[in-house]
Amino acid sequence: MTTAVRFDGVSRHFGSVKAVDAVDLAIGEGEFFAMLGPSGSGKTTCLRLIAGFEQPTAGEIEIFGSPAGGVPPYRRNVNTVFQDYALFPHLSVMDNVAYGLMIKGVGKAERRRAAEATLEMVRLTGYGSRKPSQLSGGQRQRVALARALINKPKVLLLDEPLGALDLKLREDMQEELKVLQRSLGITFVFVTHDQGEALSMADRVAVFDQGKIRQIGTPQEIYQQPTSAFVANFVGSSNVLPADLVAQLGSGHAQASLRPEAIRLVSAGGHPAEIIATSFVGAATKLALQMGDIRLHALIDHRTHDCEVGQQVLIDWNPEDLHLMDGGDE
C-alpha cells in the first residue's frame, strides 16, 4: 500500500505550548483515518500541518512521498472541509463549488457542468443559485464537501465536519461519508472528539493527548485493547483497575482495563460489590458498582437479572478480559 501522508518526528510548538510533539504517523492511500482526542490534544493542528496552514517546528511531512516543507497550501493536492465550512458568503453555491476549477482556469461551461455533477453527488441538485446563508447546516456541510471533492484531491481533510449538526443528521452523514469514501477511493483524514464517530467510521484511529499519539490501531484494537488508561477512559469508558488490585488478582503488576460488558453477576465466588446507580440503555442496564474503593461500570442484560440500587451483588469476569496496559501516563 502506498503511503499517502507520513509524519516523521513532527512537532509544532507555539512558544512554550507543544501543540504537536514528535509525532510519527503513516496514513495509507485510500484509508479512512480518524484523529481522535479531546480539544487541545493536537489533532486539529496535525490536520492543519497536512493542509499547509501550519509549518512544523521540527520533523518532516511527506505527502505521497514528496516532502511538503515550504509548499504553500495552494500547491498541495489536498483539500479541506472546514469545521465552520468556510463557504464564501459573497458567492452562490454553484460558484463556491466551482471555485477551485475557476482558479485552475477551467472554462465557464465546463466548470458549471462539473459543479452540477458534484452537487448531484452530494444530493443538492437545484441548489446552485442559492447563497450559503439560505441553506441549512446540513446543506452547507454538503456544499463544503462538494467544493473540496470537485478538485479530485489525493487526500481529503475533514475538521470535525459533523460537529455542528444535530444527532439524527449526524448519523445520516456518517453513513453517507463512508459510502462516498468507499466509492471515490480518496484518502480521508477525519478529525473528531467523538469516539463513537471515530470508531464507527474509520479504518484506523489515532488517539491524541497533549500533542502526542497515545495509540494507533483499528477501531477493534483501540476499543478492546487500550494500551493506556487515557485511551481506555477516553475511548470506551472502560473500567481501569489500579496496579495493586491487578497484582492482588494475580494477573501481573500494571494497570488493567476491563470492559463494562465483560463484567457479569454471579451467584457464588467472584467479588462483592454494591449497586449504587442503575440506568436503562436500551438492550441492557448500565450499573454503577462500588467494589472496595473503586467504582466500576457494568452492562447487564436486564432480562436475566433484577437490579436494585443498594443491592449487594457478586461480580466476576474472565481473566483474559483483563487487559494489562503499559500505563505510560498518570
Partner: peptide, 12 residues
C-alpha cells in the same frame, strides 16, 4: 515545485 504528487495547479 514540479512535483506531480503535490502540485497539480497548471497556472502555478
Amino acid at each position: 515545485m514540479s512535483n506531480v504528487a503535490i502540485t497539480s495547479q497548471p497556472r502555478g
